[in-house]
Simulated assay, not measured.
Amino acid sequence: MRKIVFILTILVFQQNIYSQKEIVGKVEYYKSYSYGIPSFDSGIGKSLNRLNSQNQKIQIRQGTTIREFETDSNGVFKCSVNPNEKIYLSINKNSKTTNADFSFEPSELKDSLKLKISDSRIMTYRDSISTPEFYNKYSETQARVDFENRNLRIIGGGSFLTKKTIKRRKKIAKEYGFRYEYEFGCEIMGAEYRIIHRYNETMKKLIGINKNVW
Rank of each mutant, 00 (worst) to 15 (best):
I172V: 12
K86W: 03
K137A: 03
D41M: 04
K171G: 05
S128F: 13
R168T: 12
K93T: 05
I155M: 09
R126K: 12
S159T: 09
L206W: 01
N52G: 02
Q54G: 05
L113C: 04
N74K: 13
F160H: 09
N82F: 09
T97M: 09
K167L: 08
P132I: 13
V213G: 01
Y88N: 10
Y193K: 14
E85F: 13
N84M: 10
S42F: 07
S95K: 04
Y18E: 15
S139W: 06
D72A: 06
I66S: 06
Q20C: 06
Y176K: 10
Q59K: 15
G158S: 13
G156A: 14
S47Y: 10
N136I: 08
E28Y: 08
G36L: 08
F13H: 12
F160T: 09
Y199K: 00
P38W: 13
Q142V: 09
F184H: 08
S47R: 15
G75Y: 02
F184G: 01
M1E: 12
Q59E: 10
T65I: 15
T71H: 01
T141S: 10
F134P: 04
S95L: 02
L113E: 02
R61T: 11
S118V: 07
I7D: 02
Y18F: 15
I129Q: 10
I122K: 04
K170V: 08
S107R: 12
S19A: 15
L48S: 06
V145W: 01
E175C: 07
K46P: 05
S128G: 01
I91P: 02
S103G: 01
N136E: 13
E68T: 15
Y182V: 03
F6P: 07
L89T: 08
F77Q: 00
Y125N: 09
K114S: 14
S159M: 11
S32W: 10
E68V: 13
K57P: 11
S73N: 12
D119V: 05
F104R: 02
L48E: 06
V81I: 11
F104E: 01
K174P: 07
Y30R: 11
N55I: 07
Y18P: 07
K31F: 04
K46D: 12
K116T: 05
E108R: 10
F134N: 01
F13S: 15
